[in-house]
Structures are given as structure tokens and as C-alpha cells.
Design a protein around this nucleic acid. Sequence first.
DNA 1: CATTGACTTAGAGTGCGCTCGAACTCGTAG
DNA 2: CTACGAGTTCGAGCGCACTCTAAGTCAATG
Lengths: 142, 142
Amino acid sequence: MKIGELARRSGLSAHTIRYYERIGLLPYADRDRSRQRDYDASILTWIDFLGRLKTTGMPIREMLRYAALRENGSGTEAERRLLLERHREHVRARVAELEACLLVLDTKIAGYADIEKRIEDHDAHQRTRRNQQAGARQAGSR
Amino acid sequence: MKIGELARRSGLSAHTIRYYERIGLLPYADRDRSRQRDYDASILTWIDFLGRLKTTGMPIREMLRYAALRENGSGTEAERRLLLERHREHVRARVAELEACLLVLDTKIAGYADIEKRIEDHDAHQRTRRNQQAGARQAGSR
DNA sequence: CATTGACTTAGAGTGCGCTCGAACTCGTAG
DNA sequence: CTACGAGTTCGAGCGCACTCTAAGTCAATG
């Protein structure tokens, strides 16, 4: 698979794939006879996992640490696990934080809903009064 | 309250407070006789809410829209409500996304835990074998 | 009256994570 | 044979949200 296809299938741009290789997030890719990168489909699994780390806010610095451990192969599992466990705690904390903010947003939105409701009631009241006055005029004009 | 105290109480730096005023996130603050900003405690409520928007990933551009509506006072409630409701949906989606990632992390971590357990079992087995051999040697030497 | 320390402004610099441009090389189709 | 499209490298540029520097003002304190 060449870089263009990998880009399409991974959702990254070819620019980004080269950038990731340059900084060491992706392993140095084998090149074909004309020095073009030739990828194995298995790289997609890794890119997908990197995407999860990125989505959950892991900085590239830390992804690099993980990628380096992975390159070193067996013997680094305990450290990789520790890294992911620490990251998982960050993510859990982040979810809790967002949920707390959601409560604040709910309250704020409910407040605006109240204001709008009061305005509607007020308008309805005004209409009723105008209708009553119109009715009174009609009644008087008979 | 001067900027230093507001910085301490809000958690923002004085630099950031001035920056926020410059771009319009914070209203232009009244100055005292020596042109220093003089804040009312009520600004803390606004800064706190801005913090919630920021924490939940709202870009400054959008906070500016909200701040501008707020400055325009009454009559903008419906639009402010809409803006917050849209943002709330973004946040909910984000929480769902993070929770999906947490499942992936759980699986990955469990995988590493398995590997480590297998290694431990293997080591224990090796130790048992060595002990048995040592026992056999001792028995033979008696 | 001199110093200290918190404040003022305008504008430059930083860190992150890409993103793009320029100039080039290949392999294939017309 | 040449034109095209997809690839290559290297390095510059960008958007975001600050963060800091320099040079200056001011009020209070020793």
C-alpha cells in the first residue's frame, strides 16, 4: 500500500503520515525500488490506536514514549501498561470534568428557557388585553 | 479589586486577563485615578463561566460571540440559549467519544495484564523446577 | 526624596500539531 | 517521447491560546 491509499484508509493526510514517521510516531516505512513508502495493512491498527490516544488528549511527546517502548518489543509491557493506566486516569478525570460542566450548562440553558417563557407569557397577556379592549370598543359601538 | 487580586482569585494570570479584555472576552474594565483596572467581584462569575466553556473545548471565537450577545443585553437570550444548546451537544458527543476510547484502553491494558501474568506463571514454574532439581541433588547427596 | 512593587501599554515570542510549498523523481498511458 | 499523477525531501508557515518583554507610570513606605 502506498502513502496515498494509506491516507485514504487511515483518515490522515499523506503530509501527516510523513510527519509522524519523521518524528517517530510511525515506524520508518520500507521503500519500493523507486524509494516510495510501501505499507503493510497492519499499520492501520497502530494508526487507529494512535488516534485513540490523540482523541483522548495524549500529547505527542507521550505517544512517542509509548511508540518507543513498542519498538523495543517484549520486555516493555509493564511500562506500556503503566503508561496507559496513567493515561486512563487522565481520561476518566476529564470525563468527570466535562460532566460537571454539562450540569452548569443545563442550569444556564434552563435559566434562558425561563426568561423566554416569561416573555411569551407577557406577550400572550398583552394580546389578551388588546383583545379585551377591542371587544370593549366593539361592544360600546353597538 | 485590582488585576493582581483578580488573577489570584480567578486562577488566570494578569497577562491573560489583559489579553481577554483586549480581545473582548472580558468587558473593558473601569480604571482608577491612576489608570489601573478596578474590578467588581461580579466579574468572577463571568470568568468562571468562561472557564467552563474553555474546559469543554469551546474555541475563543465562539466565546466571543457569546460575550458579544451578553454585552448587548436583553433580547439576545434566545440566541445565547441556542449557542449553549449547540455547545452542549458537542460536549455530550465528546463525552461519548472519550467513553468509547476508555473501553479500548481497558481492553489494551487487560491485554498487557495477561502478558505479565503469563510471565509470572512462567517464572514461578521455572522456580519450581529449579527447587525440584535442587531437592533431587540434596536427596542424592545424603 | 528615593526606592519598591504593582500596575500600564504595545508588540514580540512560544509550544503544539500540523499543513503547505517548492523543486524534484518515477512509472505508466496516450 | 512526452505528459501526467503520485510520490519524494526539506524547510517554511499557520492557527490557536496564550505568555513574556521592555519601557514606562504611579502610590505608598522607609
